[in-house]
């Protein structure tokens, strides 16, 4: 199938069942809300090495936040609900509570919940104060600029991680532009994040390695420099660069929609071929066929 000048391969992205949460960070200004959000989503590109995947969903105007201040919505995913709780505790504690003027609220109603403020409160060393308003419990933790307000519990729901697109282009500039266009389009879809730096990853991986103990290694089939002698290659002769976009979402529909608009945007900006990574359907719980996205 062709979209613009790009060939869309008849294959599927293999995605995984994950657990996700939505964190609303507010602050006195959009700058400080974003500073905390960037810190919280740093070093959160892949569960393989970071224990979680996180990204900024969108900026929130004052009218959409619980305390009427500028905010940022962050999504965080991990492989279990328990792990999401642990990562939230670490990152809200180290990255949000530390940033001047911030507050942190749950942005997801879900059956499962993780205690975040309910544990962070101990930082208050007995001076913390609970407040219960309209069915939600908050903690006021005294800090040096006043108080850090954090919600007691955060919703955690079953989610989808590892949706992906592989974009092959003639060279680095064109491929990067195509990937950037795809990222810009995909970021308009609510409920999804692209956890890699500015949404794009160049070091796609395959499971396993020739070296013992390594869970993943470079995806040689998509490395242009190895095309001449790798055991198998997916790099077409016209291509000089491959970039990947990974998508995590709070539901499968969001991931599918992000991939659909991403294909269209990449194709419109010079991609030669668009494909997706999978493991033969043996590892992931979800198979997202590229052609099925375009047919929908």
């Amino acid at each position: 199938m062709r979209v613009e000048n790009a060939e869309v391969v008849d294959t599927f992205a293999e995605a995984f069942a994950m657990w996700g949460s939505r964190v609303i960070i507010t602050a006195v200004s959009p700058v400080w809300a974003m500073a905390a959000a960037r810190a919280m989503t740093g070093f959160a590109t892949s569960v393989i090495g970071c224990k979680c995947e996180a990204g900024i969903e969108r900026e929130l105007p004052s009218a959409e936040t619980p305390d009427g201040r500028p905010g940022v919505s962050v999504l965080l995913f991990s492989m279990s609900a328990d792990s999401v709780g642990k990562r939230l505790l670490e990152r809200v504690g180290q990255c949000v509570m530390t940033a001047p003027t911030t507050a942190c609220f749950n942005g997801l109603t879900a059956e499962q919940e993780a205690a975040v403020g309910g544990k962070l409160r101990y930082f208050g060393d007995g001076y913390q104060i609970a407040k219960f308003l309209d069915g939600r419990r908050y903690w006021r933790i005294p800090v040096m600029d006043g108080e850090f307000v954090v919600e007691d519990r955060f919703g955690v729901k079953s989610s989808v991680g590892g949706g992906n697109l592989l974009i092959l282009g003639p060279d680095l500039p064109v491929t990067l532009a195509a990937a950037e266009a795809a990222v810009a389009a995909m970021r308009q879809v609510p409920g999804v994040i692209l956890p890699f730096p500015d949404g794009i990853v160049r070091s796609g991986s395959k499971p396993g390695s020739k070296y013992k103990g390594l869970p993943a290694s470079t995806n040689d089939a998509y490395c242009p420099t190895l095309r001449a002698f790798a055991p198998s290659t997916e790099v077409i002769p016209e291509a000089g660069c491959v970039l990947e976009i990974v998508i995590d979402g709070l539901d499968l529909e969001g991931v599918r929609e992000a991939m659909r608009v991403g294909i269209g945007a990449a194709a419109a900006h010079g991609a030669l071929r668009i494909t997706a990574g999978n493991y033969g359907g043996h590892l992931g719980q979800y198979q997202i066929g590229l052609h099925s996205l375009l047919a929908a």
Binding site: P66, G68, R140, G146
Partner: peptide, 13 residues
Amino acid sequence: RYEPLYLRLYLLH
């Protein structure tokens, strides 16, 4: 003298 953030939640409510 400060701006109690939690109070915003109450007053907006």
